[in-house]
């Protein structure tokens, strides 16, 4: 295992530009350390990034809130900026891991680690978040919804990393919000199902619906087909059998030690129903 602690961003870029070896960025370490321990990471290069100021902090930039990738979950929970602009996002993160983990875990690490259970992702998806992905010579802004390509895989190249997460300041404005995380206990809970939703209604019809689910696919995803079906319908016009059918196309839940696929599927159906009814 090779270890690098770059002095600054330049040093960081130099390092990741120079070699194409499998590399990991050590931010909070709450995923990496476990993966090293159980042997899923070995003989890789570890690059420490938590000390780099350019990657850290919460700012308002014009119409966006920009959260540095190495910002801790606890910093988001305590942030005034977030409280004022994205209270739903903030509130929903309270169930993230545990208070002890929140002080280490970072938002960027949660996204990049790419677990199907990553809690911030469904939330960010319904908030239409974008990622700022940087390399030595390029900055690209991509929609979070286009970031993942499969189980623990994403579009980042070996010389790139996430610099920040960009959320429209008004992402929650005017919406009814919904977030439910289902697990086997109330803290230190790995989600079996998570569902985030935003909706607004005008003249009894859903004018906008945004839905994202975690733990139900290889990575957390927006449920676009369902959104499309529901938009511009009133509650009475919705055929829930159709919703179930569409959900079947949108999610691929599995049975494992933690839960069963049928359970996951039906709970998701129930949660969507409750979200629409509330």
């Amino acid at each position: 295992m090779k270890f690098i602690r770059p002095n600054d961003m330049e040093g960081l870029f130099q390092n990741i530009e120079e070699n194409n070896d499998r590399k990991y960025f050590l931010a909070g370490g709450t995923d990496i350390n476990i993966q090293i321990k159980n042997g899923t990471i070995k003989d890789a290069e570890i690059i420490y990034i938590k000390h780099l100021k350019e990657l850290n902090g919460i700012q308002i930039e014009k119409d966006d809130i920009v959260i540095g990738a190495t910002t801790n979950i606890s910093d988001i929970l305590n942030s005034k900026i977030i409280k004022e602009n994205l209270p739903f996002f903030q509130r929903s993160l309270e169930s993230f891991a545990s208070p002890l983990l929140q002080t280490s875990a970072t938002i960027g690490g949660n996204i990049a680690n790419g677990s199907p259970t990553a809690d911030v992702v469904p939330l960010l998806l319904v908030l239409d978040a974008k990622l700022e992905i940087v390399s030595k010579s390029q900055i690209r802004i991509i929609e979070l919804t286009n970031f993942f390509t499969g189980y623990k895989t994403n579009i980042m190249k070996a010389n790139e990393l996430i610099r920040s997460i960009i959320i429209p300041k008004k992402a929650e404005n005017g919406f009814d919000t919904f977030f439910e995380k289902v697990g086997s206990r109330k803290s230190l809970m790995i989600s079996k199902i998570s569902l985030a939703g935003l909706k607004n209604i005008s003249h009894n019809k859903f004018t906008t619906i945004k839905l994202a689910a975690g733990s139900l696919n290889e990575y957390p995803r927006r449920l676009y087909k369902i959104e499309e079906y529901l938009t511009d319908k009133s509650l009475l016009e919705i055929d829930f059998l159709k919703v179930e059918e569409l959900l079947n196309e949108e999610i691929t839940p599995i049975t494992d030690l933690r839960s069963d696929k049928e359970y996951r599927y039906h709970v998701c159906v129930n949660l969507i129903r409750t979200f629409l009814n509330e």
Binding site: S184, R185, K186, S187, L257
Partner: peptide, 26 residues
């Protein structure tokens, strides 16, 4: 309510991540 260690077809648990003990909120 919740403690078990083995699931038919999926075997035995491996640590405190799987074997979920009650927390202060439970």
């Amino acid at each position: 309510l919740c403690e078990f260690f083995y699931k038919s077809g999926y075997g035995r648990m491996h640590g405190f991540t799987d074997y979920a003990l009650p927390t202060t909120l439970d």
